[in-house]
């Protein structure tokens, strides 16, 4: 990739970051609260995309990873009174172990079957948190009244945004290296990657580890923002649906796509609230995604990119004149 393009993208990232830092100055508290959820959804969608969008191993069990992180830190802080700077790193570590559980089946199966195993992981976790040791996990009610990192809408906004931005930026730097192209090659043709003398084992392990770590960071911070955790809110097809839809609608296989999707959907839902309450909102949510997915599987990101490619020359001419 030419250096000038690198600089241009870098500039885009910086501009995006700077703009988002200014948002609380002019936005209402309501919008800031909405953006916090968008930031978390963006983290989850990026985490999903590292495995599924890049390597083609579709995970239907991402709530499982997020849930491990959430439950670990919730249980540690609640029952052992652990401070957050201990419980959150431990939660991320636990998620890495969970990611390894995902990784084992991925050594043998891929594609549709892999998605099924991960889905089964999530459903199993849903049942087990309720059945096994409900005194510790809080059973169906879950745990609530958890410690918060900071209070208030604006501080939480900055926290969630900086974490999201840092993750996005790191991922962007990673995928620009040869590792990024190798991961994409796994999606296309895993045998060819092996034939080139690269270890798909190591590459996949890297992708799964990164994805789990991101899910762990997001999940642990998320429960301490929300203040509660419950199996029905986490290990649920609707939660999986939200993550999937954010990544796919925005554009999987990119970094900006999942962020775009997460922001778009969160805003769509919140702005529809006064007009449509109830199930209609999810209906619209899903229907839009299906349409975009069938017409342009690479999502809004690709649509915008093409629109930009069409407009840019005209703009350049305009400026030249």
């Amino acid at each position: 990739m030419p250096k000038s393009q690198f600089h241009r993208y870098l500039l885009c990232w910086l501009a995006f970051g700077a703009f988002m830092c200014l948002v609380p100055l002019f936005a209402s508290t309501g919008m800031v609260r909405v953006l916090i959820f968008a930031n978390f959804l963006a983290i989850f969608a990026m985490s999903w995309d590292i495995i599924s969008g890049r390597t083609g191993y579709i995970s239907f069990g991402h709530p499982f990873l997020i849930g491990i992180a959430g439950y670990t830190t919730a249980i540690l802080t609640r029952h052992l009174d652990a401070p957050l700077y201990v419980s959150i790193p431990l939660a991320i570590l636990a998620t890495l172990v969970g990611g390894a559980l995902f990784f084992v089946p991925a050594l043998r199966i891929r594609g549709t079957y892999f998605a099924l195993v991960t889905l089964a992981f999530m459903e199993l976790m849903y049942q087990l948190t309720q059945v096994i040791a409900p005194k510790i996990t809080g059973g169906t009610r879950g745990l609530s009244g958890l410690k918060t990192i900071i209070l208030g809408a604006v501080p939480n906004y900055y926290l969630s945004f900086f974490v999201m931005f840092a993750i996005a930026f790191c991922l962007w730097l990673i995928v620009r290296t040869r590792i990024g192209s190798a991961l994409a090659a796994i999606r296309m043709d895993e045998e060819a990657v092996t034939a080139l003398g690269l270890s798909t084992f190591k590459l996949k392990l890297f992708a799964f580890g990164t994805s789990a770590a991101v899910a762990g960071i997001g999940g642990a911070l998320y429960v301490h923002y929300i203040g509660s955790i419950a199996p029905r809110a986490l290990f649920d097809i609707n939660f999986l649906f939200t993550i999937l839809v954010a990544a796919l609608l925005g554009g999987s296989g990119t970094i900006a796509g999942p962020i775009l999707g997460a922001y778009f959907l969160t805003f769509l839902l919140e702005y529809l609230r006064p007009f449509l309450s109830g199930a209609e909102r999810y209906l619209i949510y899903g229907a839009i995604t299906l349409i975009v997915y069938v017409l342009e599987p690479r999502g809004l990101h690709s649509i915008l990119e093409r629109a930009y490619a069409r407009i840019a020359p005209a703009l350049a001419r305009g400026f030249a004149r």
Partner: peptide
């Protein structure tokens, strides 16, 4: 219902 109330309970205190 109860898990939902428990969910927003901390927000209420805030």
């Amino acid at each position: 219902i109860d898990d939902v109330s428990l969910g927003w309970f901390e927000r209420m205190a805030e």
